[in-house]
């Protein structure tokens, strides 16, 4: 599409495109616009949002309660750091680490194909705890309790902070594009069929088992890649980084933001990164706030911040909305039957 063709669209569309271009420019120019500290916070938003996109796939769209994302992040972080220390290039190491995480995802997902929701919650929680034990014990790779230092990636001609930002931005952008694409193609519909009508799925030619396993693998892969980035942000890894506290942050990110929406994790990530910064010296207060936010979000905003525009639009009485906001994911069922 040429720029001219874009401009010939409706004014609303032009405004949308212009907004997107402006946002992209601001994001690309960010290292020159803000100080390194804010840039670092922005990196954290991108990383946690990327991990959150994995949760959109597994929890939002396929409806599986997976409490293992912190464990996958740990696998990705440690594996990348180890491989880079062995002389691998960072991109190759990160993708390999993602594949390792995906393998774990399939392993933990195998029982998931047979388990009712909360058994899965327990199994995935136990897996995450088990991974922490592994990080503590596997001293040759992880450095055990003492931890291991992360080699920073430096892009040619850019300083460390800028390199980290572009790395995080690129991965977040690619992941967002991939997840959005998945949401639109057959896989996204299959995921939602499994969530909303698992028993009917086979009659639509959808195998719940294969679909769930794929969701687990993809979500773990994204978690692993996010872990590789998270390692870049932390610069030093210890096992307790990936404990229950991180899981709780992810739950806040996913459910405050809105686990059914691609934009959800980004909204949630901004809130969590700001909170983390505000409350960093107040350990227990921080957890109290997270817990309360999570509880309030579940009780009063079950579809998250990302659902607010649609909700407000639905509440406004006069002009009929061009497309009614889906009340639940079930609207997609008809699409899957095609």
């Amino acid at each position: 599409m040429t720029p001219l063709a874009l401009l010939s669209g409706s004014p609303r569309r032009v405004a949308g495109v212009a907004g997107a271009v402006a946002a992209a420019l601001v994001l690309l120019a960010l290292p020159g616009l803000v100080n390194p500290y804010l840039l670092f916070q922005a990196c954290l938003v991108m990383v946690t949002a990327t991990a959150g996109l994995g949760l959109v796939l597994i929890m939002g769209w396929s409806g599986q309660i997976a409490l293992s994302q912190a464990g996958f992040l740990g696998v990705g972080a440690y594996a990348t750091t180890y491989l880079v220390a062995q002389g691998w290039a960072w991109p190759l190491a990160a993708v390999t680490a993602g594949l390792v995480a995906a393998l774990f995802g399939v392993l933990i997902g195998l029982p998931a194909t047979r388990l009712r929701g909360f058994y899965l919650a327990i199994a995935t929680l136990a897996f995450a705890e088990l991974m922490i034990r592994v990080f503590v014990e596997a001293t040759p790779v992880t450095g055990g309790i003492a931890g291991t230092a992360v080699q920073a990636v430096v892009l040619p001609g850019i300083d460390v902070d800028g390199s980290r930002w572009y790395l995080c931005l690129a991965v977040a952008a690619v992941t967002t594009a991939v997840v959005m694409r998945i949401g639109r193609v057959g896989l996204g519909r299959r995921l939602r069929v499994v969530r909303d009508a698992e028993i009917a799925a086979p009659s639509l030619g959808v195998s719940p088992m294969r679909t769930k396993l794929l969701a687990f693998a993809l979500s773990a892969f994204i978690g692993g890649i996010a872990g590789a980035l998270y390692a870049q942000c932390l610069s030093y890894l210890t096992p307790e980084i990936f404990d229950m506290g991180l899981l709780i942050e992810f739950l806040v990110i996913a459910f405050l933001g809105g686990v059914g929406y691609v934009a959800g994790p980004f909204l949630g990530a901004v809130v969590v990164v700001v909170l983390r910064d505000l409350l960093q010296d107040l350990g227990s207060w921080q957890r109290l706030v997270y817990g309360l936010i999570l509880a309030l979000a579940i009780a009063f905003l079950p579809r998250g911040l990302a659902s607010l525009p649609a909700r407000l639009r639905a509440r406004r009485p006069a002009p009929p909305a061009p497309e009614p906001p889906p009340v639940s994911g079930q609207a997609d069922l008809t699409g899957a039957a095609r």
């Binding site: 929701g117 957890r287 817990g291 509880a295 079950p302």
Partner: peptide, 30 residues
């Protein structure tokens, strides 16, 4: 915390119990 959301899916109640876990634990620590 639990009864008001029981009508919703399992998912919400599981997450709510996790939230309660976090809140009580933080209060004990404080």
């Amino acid at each position: 915390a639990i009864r008001p959301i029981l009508a919703e899916n399992h998912f919400a109640t599981v997450l709510m119990t996790i939230a309660v876990f976090v809140v009580i634990n933080a209060v004990v620590q404080l």
